[in-house]
Design a protein around this nucleic acid. Structure first.
Lengths: 233, 233
DNA sequence: CGCGCCCTATCGGTCGATCGATTGGCGAGC
DNA sequence: GCTCGCCAATCGATCGACCGATAGGGCGCG
């Protein structure tokens, strides 16, 4: 099991293991990465590895849990103070897309390696994922109830939204020339269109909404997203 | 290398290997399935396996190639005789959703196990996938050029459509009570909405379009999709 | 007989995990 | 201030199990 980070050096080594695991699991899949390869990626011997993690599967589970916990945290806070279902969807899309573009490897591991967990752990992860999806389900239900959204099936719509937003992690490259904010706002618009929001009702991209999502992601993921998109002041 | 199917019994055994591989690779991932487990799933010894396949990786590659070839075939034929970009998208969505619901395991393998292939084979598969995506790219470009579609970014829209349609394979269960046709028509509507087709322009589900896609899938995949959705005659 | 089919047995290699031993820095006791 | 004991950190070596793949012989049918 994971030891407590007692010293500074220990915490750094733990981070190296964590980072190497995310990078390698995303690139080759959990079963495609051996202990020795993981150790080499983390810059230590395979035996030393076990000072900083439990079993290989526990390492995967802890990565997933941390990622899903942060996502749930963000989704809860971003929907709590927005009563308008349209704003809720926009914020959920922003958070989801920003995180999937910011951490494509981590999210790919969470999305693709559930099958590598044994039944008990996998069930727990599925519960976390379901809790996250529930934020989307409620927002869609609100929008449909108030007549804002028009979809043939709410479950299909929810799955479609989640899949299209998660897909960003598969093609987005952080060092590319595509601006993060642009990806997020474009997907927010696609999401509202998918939900049947008429063109004349569609709001312009609201800088306040964008900033709210950015700030939340920066806080929870402890990163800086750099400069905002150029403000046409 | 795959041997030529010389006898009836040989062809059946080959099919057993093929089916077991799809089922197990989808459930546990390519690297998560051993030769012995694959042999047990196919009902033969691990040595006998090699009478019906090349290496394990060649088996995976042949499964992917067959699946992608059929998908490309279907996409080419379904867009060839439909000049209207709206009809092209509807048909593409129908074919994509029907196949992903009909063969969730096979499509899951194709979508998730590309990384398990060595560079040379992977490149070939990516080329096939890109050729398939090109059918979608052209349909979207046509629709945008004629003013039918309104999207913030054509590439984002294409990726969103493909992801949301592929996602069906992750949750659809053939033995469930959800009708195939209903899933396909619902997703066709979601797709058109995502592309910004106004509500008043949106066509009702066209039985002819549905039947065209059904027939094509039945022919290329050599299956029967059962009765159509009840026709309100 | 000859050939397709299928087996047991086995190959060298790698898997995930653990062993005992060593190192080095840090704090307590005198 | 010096020493000594402790403990996190790290290693090479190795465990039993399993990996993908092959060798070679027996069986049954035309």
């Amino acid at each position: 099991m994971a030891k407590s980070p007692s010293t500074r050096a220990g915490a750094q080594a733990r981070r190296q293991v964590w980072d190497a695991a995310i990078r390698l699991f995303a690139a080759k899949g959990f079963h495609g990465v051996g202990i020795r390869e993981l150790a080499e990626g983390a810059g230590m011997s395979s035996a030393t590895l076990y000072h900083y993690m439990g079993t290989k599967e526990e390492l995967l589970a802890s990565i997933m849990r941390a990622s899903l916990d942060r996502l749930n945290d963000a989704a809860g806070r971003v929907t709590a103070d927005a009563s308008d279902p349209q704003a809720q969807i926009v914020r959920l899309v922003h958070v989801h897309v920003l995180t999937h573009a910011l951490r494509p490897e981590e999210t790919a591991v969470v999305d693709n390696e559930l099958e590598a967990l044994r039944a008990e752990r996998r069930t727990a992860m599925v519960a976390l994922r379901d809790a996250y999806e529930d934020h989307w389900r409620r927002a869609i239900a609100n929008g449909c109830a108030s007549g804002l959204f028009t979809v043939p099936d709410r479950t299909f719509a929810r799955m479609a939204l989640l899949e299209m937003c998660s897909g960003v992690a598969k093609w987005y490259s952080p060092d590319g020339s595509i601006a993060l904010d642009g990806v997020a706002t474009a997907h927010a618009r696609l999401a509202l269109q998918l939900l049947g929001v008429p063109a004349h009702t569609m709001p312009r991209p609201d800088p306040a909404e964008i900033q709210a999502a950015r700030a939340l992601v920066e806080e929870i993921w402890q990163v800086s997203l750099g400069a905002s998109a150029p403000d046409p002041a």
